[in-house]
Design a protein around this nucleic acid. Structure first.
Lengths: 216, 216
DNA sequence: ACACATAACTGAATCCAGTACAAGAATATT
DNA sequence: AATATTCTTGTACTGGATTCAGTTATGTGT
């Protein structure tokens, strides 16, 4: 709900696109920055949406023009990448086994994440306290992607999406991805790109689903 | 937070245990029943804690004597089982490979779930609308168990709990468990016990982690 | 210039979950 | 009866989230 007309999917942060109407005085970035500062200063739980908008110089209502929920502030970059996952899946090599294809797709979608570009949430999540609430905002991403992966796996395998197998594949792969992302972020300055972490984490899962079951 | 003194861990719903003090006028069960009715009638989001307690004939405050959060109404049976997971892990055969041991532990902990005992949340989750909020309450379970599994796996493998491997194992196994539980619930009257579903879902994961990596 | 459509912001009202706490009520123990 | 224990109730408060009517700032067409 609360559909955002907003900046045409915020494709480019530099040119928020609005050739007509009142120009934006704020932006996702401005609000994100304000929020990040406050989260570090006072922690996530003690930072209210009022605080964020006050620091950003807009009114409280404006916040919800840019984000559907307080927790969504974190996920701008991540959501952008995940939005491409569907295309990456569609463009994947039809010869590859399902889980390999999923791995490649995630690796593709994670293209942008390297040593110099780590989602804020992944690096700072220890500092801001209150893990539960933050991770709750992660779950919506999880389930959205799980649905995508499940239909993909079902189609690839030629089985019904409601079968157990595509569901297990979807869930295990995406949780391996999450684990990989967390390990990658935790690796500190030694981390390189995200993609290798993803592939390493998914390798045993892929092996398992190729070997033991009657799926190719 | 909001520690429940409550019924000595609600071991038996029939005898809420309180040899001294004012006797309970309500119970988890009463509140659950009221909540389930309302969730089906009006959906989860539109059902307030006030509604629940009104139907149950107690005051709003009482609800939070029995449940820490609105979403916890669902999880009574599940939490009970998960509480045993730690013991089941500890009691597992040290010879088994990690993921097998985890599978056995889950199967043990899922003992109670059979054709006649399906957690309400698993069967009704489509009907009640507003998946997000419900799933948020699932996340706390997920993370709690993930932490348990991660330390277990790390200890078994003799590696640091912060290493990627135990994390991936923990995440993938628990998500396979969730997938299995959902498929089991969706199977309708044809479903038997939960345990076989768990083992089937975990089998490929176990294979993968035994085969490809240098873990025993 | 002027009017108009459009898009964004404002601000206030509302709802509800969750927290805290004090006061009261019903029971067992002494 | 007095007391301790345990649960219930009521009230008040914080803060996230939703809604909406009204306002403001811009571009566009005349």
């Amino acid at each position: 709900m609360t559909q955002q007309p907003l900046p045409t999917s915020a494709d480019d942060a530099g040119t928020p696109r609005a050739r007509r109407g009142r120009p934006r005085v704020s932006s996702r970035e401005v609000l994100e920055d304000a929020a990040y500062e406050l989260f570090i200063e006072n922690g996530y739980a003690k930072t209210t949406v009022d605080h964020i908008t006050q620091r950003a110089g807009v009114s409280r209502g404006t916040f919800f023009n840019y984000f559907a929920a307080k927790g969504d502030v974190f996920w701008g970059q991540v959501d952008e990448s995940l939005a491409h996952l569907g295309e990456c899946l569609a463009a994947s090599d039809p010869q590859l086994p399902v889980v390999r294809a999923i791995g490649e797709a995630f690796a593709d979608a994670a293209e942008g994440f390297g040593p110099g570009n780590v989602p804020w949430i992944l690096t700072q999540h220890q500092l801001i306290g209150s893990r539960d609430e933050v991770q709750a905002s992660a779950l919506t991403r999880f389930t959205a992607q799980a649905d995508t992966l499940r239909s993909f796996a079902a189609a690839r395998l030629g089985v019904d999406p409601t079968d157990p197998l595509p569901r297990v594949i979807a869930y295990t792969t995406i949780s391996a991805v999450i684990a990989a992302a967390q390990s990658w972020a935790a690796a500190g300055s030694s981390r390189g790109h995200l993609a290798p972490y993803l592939l390493r984490a998914l390798a045993p899962v892929a092996d398992g689903f190729e070997g033991s079951t009657v799926i190719r």
